[in-house]
């Protein structure tokens, strides 16, 4: 199935300028080597997927690759549960297409081992746990952006991740402990 997808796309790559059927991925700057199968690198592993262009990175991770640690809370970028790292930066995977992230290094909760995880447990920085992968990925991204210097900065910078159980103060403590 996967192979078929690639070859179908290869055939079409050269005809990018002409009208091609919906569902096709075409590389407009079609060079001879243009491969158009959707190839994602997730947690260091390559996955070749047969997905339509309309498939979001989030749905590709969850439904195609089976990495369900990344959660869908709103599918509109409004809750942060789907936060992953792309090339080390935190983003919302529901607002990007899988095909747009070819060639990037994608990191999901399944691919991290970070002191924040222990700190989240120690400070009880979650209850139901549904927003937690997104919180942790967001916090890892935040730490990479530069150490947040105060509780207030953590609060502001973590405001893209909703937590309905209300673990907010504990999340701040967990992050502050790790950020030093």
């Amino acid at each position: 199935m996967v192979d078929e997808g690639i070859s179908r796309r290869r055939v079409l790559a050269g005809t990018a300028a002409a009208g091609v059927a919906a569902g096709m991925t075409v590389n407009a700057s079609a060079t001879a080597s243009a491969s158009t199968g959707v190839e994602l690198t997730v947690n260091g592993e390559k996955h070749v997927l047969d997905v339509e262009p309309r498939v979001t990175l989030l749905d590709a991770l969850r439904e195609q690759i089976g990495l369900t640690g990344t959660k869908k809370g709103c599918d509109r970028g409004e809750c942060g549960a789907c936060t992953v790292l792309v090339d080390g930066r935190r983003i919302k995977s529901c607002l990007t297409l899988a095909v747009m992230r070819e060639g990037a290094e994608i990191t999901t909760i399944e691919g991290v081992r970070h002191p924040l995880q222990e700190a989240f447990i120690r400070h009880d920085a979650f209850q139901c746990g549904f927003c937690t992968p997104g919180q942790i990925m967001s916090a890892i991204g935040l730490l990479a952006e530069g150490e947040p210097g105060s509780d207030a900065q953590v609060r502001e910078q973590m405001s893209g991740n909703l937590c309905r159980c209300g673990a907010y103060p504990n999340i701040v403590r967990a992050i502050r402990e790790v950020s030093g």
Partner: peptide, 15 residues
């Protein structure tokens, strides 16, 4: 969301 074509542009002209 309807199915659509996807194309990547590498220059303004192409885009």
């Amino acid at each position: 969301m309807k199915d659509f074509q996807y194309a990547r542009a590498t220059s303004v002209t192409e885009a």
